[in-house]
């Protein structure tokens, strides 16, 4: 088992919570993991990314090599394109549809979608809408994680347990909402695959 995942987005969008959930779940299953993340200057509203590597074998590099990522999981559509040279030819690009506009000139969103559609395996998720239906806007990052789960081999129950331990100190309500977000995201992605 091996999953090399590139997480991308904008500082403050909850990439590190996704990474923490994946990492906790991987350790629970006795898998090896390495996850590199961005601290410091770039966190000030700049683009951020994290390399998440999970394997049943020892992992050497903290960084994923270009052309080797199994999944790009992005919480922002333009940011999903920043690392596409890392995606392997049959890898999956899973991205939120909602742009985060904190720059003077944000490109035309339709052109961004059309670039994303050029990737063979892609899913565009309206994660903010799904999170809003759950009355938990802040969980849109976990909706995205859920949408990516069909594309790597990590036990879904372990991910739920990980959410329990990570969000426990914020109250059971927050835990439940995040678990619901995870499930909804997964359902959405599975439905998308079926359509094809």
């Amino acid at each position: 088992m091996k999953a090399d995942i590139i997480l991308s987005g904008v500082g403050g969008q909850g990439i590190l919570s996704i990474a923490a959930t994946l990492g906790t779940a991987a350790l629970q299953e006795g898998l090896n993991m390495k996850q590199s993340e961005v601290h410091g200057m770039s966190q000030r509203g700049g683009d951020v990314s994290s390399n998440m590597r999970i394997s049943d074998k020892p992992i050497a590099s903290d960084l994923i090599a270009k052309g080797k990522a199994d999944v790009i999981l992005s919480v922002e559509p333009m940011e999903s394109l920043r690392f596409i040279s890392y995606l392997k030819p049959d890898g999956w690009l899973i991205t939120n549809s909602k742009p985060f506009k904190n720059i003077a000139v944000y490109p035309d969103i339709e052109e961004i979608y059309s670039e994303i559609r050029k990737i063979k395996n892609h899913i565009i998720v309206n994660a903010d809408e799904i999170a809003a239906e759950l009355k938990s806007l802040r969980s849109s990052n976990i909706v995205m994680l859920g949408a990516a789960t069909p594309f790597f081999d990590i036990n879904f129950e372990s991910l739920k347990k990980a959410l329990q331990s990570i969000f426990e100190n914020k109250g059971q309500d927050v835990v439940d909402k995040n678990i619901a977000a995870l499930e909804k995201g997964r359902e959405f992605a599975l439905a998308e695959i079926k359509k094809r």
Binding site: G46, M78, V105, Y106
Partner: peptide, 17 residues
């Protein structure tokens, strides 16, 4: 391998909050 990124992609430099 040269980094391939679509032309449409623009930079998102860090900024004051």
């Amino acid at each position: 391998i040269t980094d391939y990124t679509p032309n449409i992609l623009t930079g998102r430099p860090p900024a004051l909050c």
